[in-house]
């Protein structure tokens, strides 16, 4: 059987997982849409079924791939394909965030000044529609939509979170080196530490949100500032959550003795992903919190 033949590119047998994945996504999104349109109960039910399907699918699909990789039927070329896949996926994620950052920059450099009366357009816009509004950031607009609010200071929780994520990037790298050096203890230790840091980050983030909502009156409705703030930090938080889950899976696999110093694509992929959320956070910290 030529499966172990290094110069055969492994083409998997037909697989049931993709179609299950699609059905999962379909149910998930249909459920979400139905729910948003106000039919709560059916919406939630369909959405949950979809979510469970997706989770089950992931166990099945990835389990399948893991078994194949254990069997050693992936030659180096297949491994490269996986790497490229993950790399370009992360690139697409970067552009997803770029859309929101772009929006933020456009609002801050053009729209808010216009509303405040800067430039020819501003003179008219401000003079005829928004008299008396003066540009500033953060702002919730001429109608101060959402009521007066206080923006979160970058030097509290956000700063701590920055340090947490930065150090978690370091710990995951240490873990990676440990894996290459075949040092299991060290690997499991530092990977675990990374997970803990990620978890603390999420906890603090949640706390910050709670603070903003309850004490600072800084909510999704807080004009353009609240909107951009929550969509950026929110989607980042979502990615940290996913990253943490993936890290946990990797940790369990390490404990189970998966991965060899040479062959540990999944681990690397997850660490790339983790570095990516880290970089996104740095941009957030700079453009959303500080500036």
């Amino acid at each position: 059987m030529s499966q172990l033949d290094a110069n055969v590119y492994y083409v998997p047998h037909s697989s049931r997982w993709p179609i299950i994945a699609v059905i999962g996504m379909f149910l998930f999104m249909t459920g979400a849409a139905v729910w948003l349109n106000g039919y709560d109960v059916p919406g939630k039910i369909v959405l949950t079924i979809g979510a469970l399907t997706i989770i089950g699918m992931m166990f099945g699909w990835f389990g399948n791939v893991i078994r194949e990789s254990m069997k050693g039927i992936f030659n180096g070329q297949v491994d490269t394909s996986f790497r490229m896949g993950m790399m370009w996926f992360i690139v697409s994620e970067v552009f997803f965030f770029a859309a929101f950052f772009g929006g933020l920059f456009y609002i801050r450099t053009f729209v808010v000044p216009w509303l405040g009366g800067a430039g020819d357009k501003g003179i008219l816009t401000n003079g005829f529609i928004w008299q008396g509004f003066s540009a500033a950031w953060p702002t919730n607009g001429p109608d101060s939509v959402g009521g007066s609010f206080i923006a979160t200071s970058p030097w509290g929780i956000p700063l701590i979170n920055t340090l947490l994520l930065l150090s978690s990037s370091i710990t995951v790298t240490i873990a990676h080196h440990a894996l290459r050096a075949g040092n299991r203890k060290r690997l499991i230790g530092f990977l675990g530490l990374t997970i803990v840091l990620g978890a603390i980050f999420l906890g603090l983030q949640a706390h910050e949100y709670w603070e903003s909502y309850v004490h600072l009156n800084m909510t999704l409705h807080t004009g353009i500032y609240g909107a951009t703030f929550y969509i950026l930090t929110g989607f980042h938080g979502l990615h940290v959550t996913l990253g943490t889950i993936m890290l946990i899976v990797m940790w369990l696999r390490c404990v189970r003795g998966h991965f060899t110093p040479q062959n540990h694509f999944a681990f690397e992929a997850v660490s790339w992903y983790w570095h990516f959320v880290d970089v996104i956070w740095l941009c957030l910290f700079l453009f959303v919190y500080i500036l």
Partner: peptide, 11 residues
Amino acid sequence: KRDAIPGIMND
């Protein structure tokens, strides 16, 4: 010819 945009004044 200009777009008539709510909240923005074009000329």
